[in-house]
Amino acid sequence: QLNEKPLPEGWEMRFTVDGIPYFVDHNRRTTTYIDPRTGKSALDNGPQIAYVRD
């Protein structure tokens, strides 16, 4: 279940091809599976993935 609260300024939620949510921090140009609103991860110790700018 996804959090309904808005993401912090400069953050975006995207999904992997497998449908796993991850979070893009455009301020720091990093990505993470940890939801910045809750501190909880969509994966157990998930790796960071490459930042992609559209």
Rank of each mutant, 00 (worst) to 15 (best):
R53L: 07
V17T: 11
V24E: 05
E4R: 06
E12P: 00
D25I: 02
A42V: 12
G19S: 09
R37H: 02
P36Q: 01
G46V: 10
E12G: 03
I49T: 15
N3Q: 06
W11E: 02
T38S: 12
T32S: 05
I49M: 11
L43H: 13
M13F: 13
R53F: 02
R53E: 08
I20P: 04
T30E: 14
N27H: 10
D35A: 01
V52Q: 11
K40G: 14
L2G: 08
R29C: 12
Y51G: 14
E9L: 10
N27M: 14
H26M: 03
Y51N: 15
P8G: 07
I49K: 15
I49G: 15
L7C: 05
S41F: 11
Q1G: 03
F23P: 01
P21L: 10
N45D: 15
R14A: 09
R28V: 08
V52N: 15
Y22K: 02
Q1N: 06
R29I: 03
P6C: 11
V52F: 10
H26S: 08
V17E: 13
N45V: 12
T31I: 04
L2P: 05
V17P: 12
N3S: 09
D44I: 08
V52L: 09
N27S: 11
D44G: 10
W11C: 06
A50H: 13
D54H: 07
E12C: 13
R29E: 09
G46P: 07
P47D: 14
Y22E: 03
T16I: 02
Q1L: 15
T16R: 07
W11A: 02
V52R: 13
N3K: 07
H26Y: 05
T16A: 09
F15Q: 14
P36C: 01
R14E: 03
L2H: 09
N45G: 14
T32C: 03
F15M: 09
S41H: 11
D35P: 02
D25S: 05
L7Q: 03
V52I: 10
G10M: 03
P8A: 04
R53Q: 10
R53N: 15
G10E: 04
E12T: 06
A42N: 10
F23W: 09
G19Q: 14
K40A: 14
F23I: 00
D18A: 12
I20K: 09
T38M: 05
Q48R: 10
D35E: 03
V52W: 06
T31M: 03
R29T: 07
N27E: 08
M13R: 09
Q1M: 15
E9T: 11
D35F: 00
D54T: 05
P6A: 14
I34C: 06
R28D: 05
L7V: 05
G46C: 08
K40W: 09
T31L: 02
A50N: 06
T38G: 13
R53I: 02
I20A: 13
D25Q: 01
P6F: 13
F15A: 13
Q1S: 03
I34N: 07
D44V: 07
P8L: 03
R37S: 04
T32F: 01
H26F: 04
T30C: 13
D44R: 11
I49F: 07
G10Y: 04
N27G: 11
Y51D: 15
Q1P: 02
Y51R: 15
V24R: 04
Y51I: 13
T16E: 00
P6E: 14
K5F: 05
H26D: 03
D44M: 09
Q1C: 15
R53S: 11
A42E: 14
T16N: 08
Q48H: 03
E4F: 11
V52Y: 12
T38L: 06
A50M: 08
T30S: 09
T16L: 04
R53M: 07
Q1W: 01
D35L: 00
R28T: 14
V17D: 09
A42K: 15
V17F: 04
T30H: 07
H26I: 08
E9M: 06
L2Q: 05
Y51P: 15
T31V: 06
Q1A: 07
I49C: 08
I34Y: 11
Y33I: 03
L7A: 02
R53G: 14
D35R: 03
A50T: 15
R37E: 02
H26V: 05
Y22V: 04
P36T: 00
Y33V: 03
T16K: 03
T16S: 09
P21W: 02
D25E: 02
E9R: 11
K40I: 13
R53H: 13
P47F: 02
G39F: 05
P21K: 12
H26K: 05
N3A: 01
R14S: 08
Y33G: 03
K5G: 11
P21R: 13
F23T: 00
T38E: 14
N3V: 01
A50D: 13
R53C: 06
I20W: 04
V52H: 14
N27T: 07
I20N: 06
L7I: 08
K40E: 12
V24Q: 04
D54I: 00
L43E: 10
V17Y: 09
G10C: 04
S41T: 14
D35Q: 01
P47T: 14
N3G: 05
R14K: 12
I49V: 11
A50I: 07
W11D: 02
E4S: 11
P6Q: 15
V17W: 05
F15L: 13
V24P: 00
E4K: 10
R29G: 06
F15D: 07
D18I: 05
V52T: 15
P6K: 11
W11T: 07
R29Y: 06
R14N: 06
E4C: 08
K40M: 10
A42G: 13
L7P: 02
K5A: 11
P21A: 12
P36R: 00
P6M: 12
N27P: 10
Q48D: 15
L7N: 02
W11L: 05
I20S: 10
